[in-house]
Design a protein around this nucleic acid. Structure first.
Lengths: 337, 337
DNA sequence: CGATTCCATGGAAACGATTCCATCGAAGAT
DNA sequence: ATCTTCGATGGAATCGTTTCCATGGAATCG
């Protein structure tokens, strides 16, 4: 394992280490002669600077940490992709961790990333302020994405968790549904709480049944979506429509409907969360509550670079909307449940 | 921004920097008194070692690089999750990059990660040996996953790209299909090449049509799956069955079938690649060619730790198999195409 | 008693890149 | 001719942690 250092480059170029460093860093105070010699030497030796050494001196690492609940969730996979690509635009490398919807694991990731001296942190957090205390105390530039933790001043990029849900409830009730089953996300997450509150609030504005039995508390994993659908469809007076609070639970719930021989859009209306690509597998097409996940990822990085630069950017709320497709026809149009 | 260094800890504990370092590193040659004092001081000061400084001295970073084609592909999302979780078992943090199925971007990621002095590299590579030259020359411990580059000695964990495809072709021809459309992956990838070769070889063993028009060359993105299905279904003599070479192209292809009003399993038989969770959205259930992606991710990390430890592990080929479900009924059972 | 071994400690060097600051030479202004 | 400014350079210090190696004290052995 050969190790080419800047000293080797400087020697070959016949300049000092300081001059070699200046040339390689693009500093203006270097002569054309020096630039030429150093560039040639670096290329010939296959020189690759040691980022650890540079980081130690510069006190920045050109890395950002990204802690998401679970990259297997298509929504977060899309988000991870958007963040990572946008970070690269700013010459940042992305350090990545899956919290697996677990506050303890999330905390361990924060700790490791702080030790790595990431320049900034983007997280879709879960839990409360105490779970985030070490990060907040560290003063490391941080941005929340998708979810927030109350009682912090961390800038965030979140979806409007209200409008889309309200529109979905209105659409379903306007379509004749009086019993709407809701598969809720975990109440330890802001998205879980806000979407449930929006559902309940929207329901109160209609004549639909306000029945606590029609709400199942899931954990944003597909298995809980399956369990939720199973539970709700087994009620003495089952719902004629289902609304699930995220894409993975939507997948799980639809899977159960398939197993039970229920045809989406014919036997049961279904509204899914997030407009992920895989939903195109379904016929009829799914009605979804959607927001621009790519914009979310990009904006999160943009905000973070501002925080890193010492600014105090405003949080951003991205619009969400209901996209009506074939999975939610009018009740008089054909539901047999 | 306060900065607590090991010097502060040593001062507060009344020992030298060397002793403080030994205590914090768990070195045995420390007294109980010193251990107590240093631990207390570190906790009180909220000391967090600087990983860059440590890495500079130790010449290892406790990070591994993971370069995948596209985390939006559910297969690679699952793989990323498995790798990242397994890496954590070995106390490694995962640096992550999406090559977006582009050799140039892949190369840029390799370069950045080498500069970051990752302890090892896991990649699902594309291109050929010259595209990987800088990585191979660097001597950084490397493992290929899912795909390989010919003419390298890099250990790998790959799926058996033959058995599942052969079984699928046999199953389809045994079910009465004589025209089988194949949506191939890019021939710049080992998986793309091997699955196509297996398809053609299996076809040669049957009486099914060996028609070059029945093969569409895609790029492992869903849009090319959609284009492939569209193209194949528009043939003068269209296929009665489709086989797509990865999950994203499968999604795209099924979406086109939906748009065209073709019912999977009734109007057209369909075999998808990889048994991703989202496929449970479909009714009837999809027949898939599957292998254990979690095992793949874990094994890749296991191999990498062996390479890092100076060993020369054998490459591993994971079995793949056909899981027959409702999307491929017998032709006499109901296809109308 | 002297020599050897073991345990624990501390000061300094090492890791590799960046940057501070002193210095020099050349050019321009007075 | 002298002073000032600018561009370029180089040696040394810096960054924060680890580890080398010398040292001292205590215990053990011959």
């Amino acid at each position: 394992m050969r190790s080419v250092t800047i000293r080797n480059v400087a020697d070959m170029a016949g300049v000092s280490v300081a001059t070699a460093s200046r040339v390689l860093s693009g500093h203006p105070s270097t002569s054309e002669v020096a630039r030429d010699a150093v560039s040639k030497a670096a290329t010939k030796l296959g020189f690759r600077p040691n980022a650890q050494a540079r980081s130690l001196r510069k006190t920045s690492t050109q890395t950002i940490g990204l802690v998401l609940p679970d990259v297997r969730n298509p929504f977060f996979a899309d988000l991870a992709h958007a963040v990572e690509q946008r970070a690269r635009d700013f010459k940042y490398l992305t350090l990545f961790g899956n919290a697996n919807e677990d506050a303890d694991q999330q905390d361990r990731y924060f700790d490791i990333m702080l030790t790595q001296r990431v320049d900034g942190l983007i997280a879709a957090p879960q839990g409360n302020v105490t779970d985030l205390q070490s990060v907040l105390d560290s003063g490391v530039p941080t941005v929340f994405v998708d979810r927030v933790i109350p009682d912090t001043t961390v800038p965030s990029v979140t979806p409007d968790n209200v409008t889309g849900v309200r529109e979905a409830v209105r659409h379903l009730t306007n379509s004749g549904h009086r019993r709407i089953g809701y598969i809720a996300g975990p109440q330890s997450t802001s998205t879980g709480r806000e979407r449930l509150a929006a559902f309940q609030s929207a329901l109160a504005d209609t004549h639909a049944d306000d029945d606590a039995d029609l709400i199942f508390f899931g954990d944003f994993q597909s298995a809980s979506g399956a369990a939720g659908a199973h539970h709700l469809l087994e009620l003495p007076h089952p719902p004629t429509a289902l609304l699930a609070a995220d894409s993975l639970m939507s997948i799980g719930a639809v899977g159960v409907c398939n197993e039970r021989g229920l045809t989406i859009g014919t036997d049961l209306a279904f509204v899914a969360y997030d407009d992920i690509e895989a939903f195109s597998l379904i016929n009829p097409a799914l009605t979804v509550i959607a927001h621009d996940v790519n914009a979310m990822g990009r904006l999160a990085v943009d905000l973070l670079t501002q925080v890193i630069a010492g600014e105090s950017p405003e949080s951003v709320i991205l619009p969400s909307r209901l996209i009506v497709r074939g999975s939610t026809p009018s009740l008089s149009g054909g539901l047999t449940s």
